[in-house]
Amino acid sequence: MEGGGVGEVVRVDGGTVFALPSAASLKGRVPVLPALREVVPGGGLWPGSAVGVAGPGAGSLGLALVAGVVRHGGTDESGGWCGVVGMPEFGVVAAAGMGAAPERLLLVDEPGERWPDVVAALVEAVDLVLVRPPEAPGPPVVRRLSALARKHGCVLVVPDVAWPGTRLRLRVEEAHWEGVGAGHGVLRARRARVSADGRGGAWLWLPGPDGRVAPVTPHRRRLEVVA
């Protein structure tokens, strides 16, 4: 890829140029959507780690992480598989809008009390499992599933529930919906400041008007060669 070891150069609208971590430096990481690369430390998720998403906006963050793996994951980056357990309300259309191919999702809507076995089966096969346990998981279950996930390099994303050993916590710190007024308009997009472990915080369109996740372009004038 161009840019070699320095970084992959992405041109976004308005002509502003960002330097993102290069493909080489992402090797061995589970990929995220390009817009999230500057939020997530290292530009990707650690294989086998647990990721927490909490608070308002947790649903969209979960979708974005799933979409990143389905779109950019897999052995040859042609697309990975994701499992979604215990979330019948998972917005498939929104995930597709973020770039996920829906047919590479495995949905287990009603795992009931067998959810640890379902997650154990999935972590061996897919790159990321989004799971909402029906009850607070006990330490033995957490240990078993964390060990399995580490062994197979599968990322566990657990929304809203405390999961011991969580390596990375993503949060929407601030969010503003745009497009709706007092009795008119239509929801167009949301500006959201997303932080990782309380640090940083990049403004993203989550989602943008076309459903995608994109960095909010800062109003910065381009330097132009005038003479």
Binding site: W81, P102, L107, D109, E124, A125
Partner: peptide, 30 residues
Amino acid sequence: GRSGVTDRVARAADRIQALLGHRGVTRPFM
């Protein structure tokens, strides 16, 4: 039913179907 389901995924789906029944694990289509 459709190519593109890898062996690993097929096996995991088999295991989940053995736990929860045939309709226990689904793939969404738009």
